[in-house]
């Protein structure tokens, strides 16, 4: 089986400081990879390099495209890369304000990706947007309201609907539950788990919250000071951490 994403030797420096270095891994279709580490460990830098928001100083990000098979995303022309990021890729920001258009209605937010890829039937767009709002447990009566009138949890669910509406094959998530109340987090996690399993999504989730990866991720990558210090199946890494840093992380955080 061809990996959906092959990452080779990604490195990003900020002057003399290392953002992340020497990162390589494969992600297979339907697989969810968690990247954990404390703030400053380079996990968000890595995610942004993978998703094309940051240009890495070196390395390859090879995506198995529908049309031409595996291709290095960094070598693609910008038009193609942008097309990818609004069709087969999705990016869920930690702060929903970064991923939503706050002055556009919820329906318009979900419909945008459809229209960007050529949907031109208002009724159909609205229907699909409505279905997705239902899937993320937002009342369709709120469809014409702006996200600014939504609670934080609703905004995050709206962002997820907006991202998943075009049926992406790869979803990047940056602390998707960060900044939410614990009870709201639990509901969102539950929802995400359902969507990921039902749609067979491949995803890369960056988080400092081990409970999130315990619930969502098949495999884990632990990062410290820009380097990957341990990888493995989620349960294996969390229940039997090998690296001293992972042991510290697990013992200090995971009291569940």
């Amino acid at each position: 089986m061809t990996p959906l994403l092959q990452v080779r030797n990604i490195e990003k420096r900020y002057g003399a400081r290392i953002g992340c270095a020497d990162v390589s891994f494969d992600l297979y279709p339907g697989e969810v990879l968690g990247i954990v580490g404390e703030s400053g460990s380079g996990k968000s830098t890595l995610l942004n390099c993978l998703a094309g928001h940051l240009a890495p100083d070196q390395g390859e990000v090879i995506f198995d495209t529908r049309a031409d098979g595996p291709r290095d995303v960094r070598q693609m022309p910008e038009a193609e890369r942008r097309m990818l990021s609004r069709t087969d890729w999705a990016f869920v920001h930690q702060n929903p304000r970064d991923g939503l258009r706050m002055r556009v209605s919820a329906g318009g937010n979900v419909g945008e990706r459809l229209m960007a890829v050529g949907a031109r039937h208002y009724g159909d767009i609205r229907q699909t947007a409505g279905d997705w709002l239902t899937k993320v447990e937002i009342d369709t009566a709120r469809m014409d309201d702006r996200p600014s009138a939504f609670s934080g949890g609703m905004q995050q669910r709206l962002q997820i609907a907006r991202n998943l509406v075009t049926g992406p094959r790869l979803v990047f998530m940056d602390e998707p539950t960060g900044g939410l109340d614990v009870s709201v987090q639990a509901r969102l996690l539950d929802l995400l788990r359902g969507l990921v399993r039902r749609m067979g999504l491949s995803a890369i989730i960056v988080t400092h919250d081990l409970a999130v990866v315990r619930l969502l991720a098949d495999r884990l990558m632990v990062m410290k000071s820009g380097h990957v210090v341990e990888t493995g199946l989620t349960d294996q890494v969390l229940d039997d951490p090998q690296h001293a840093y992972t042991q510290l992380l697990v013992s200090s955080v995971l009291q569940v």
Partner: peptide
Amino acid sequence: HGLEEYGLMHVKLYEDIAR
């Protein structure tokens, strides 16, 4: 224009109809 990214234009029309 260069990348032919006109989705936003249709979002505006969508919002008009919704409102």
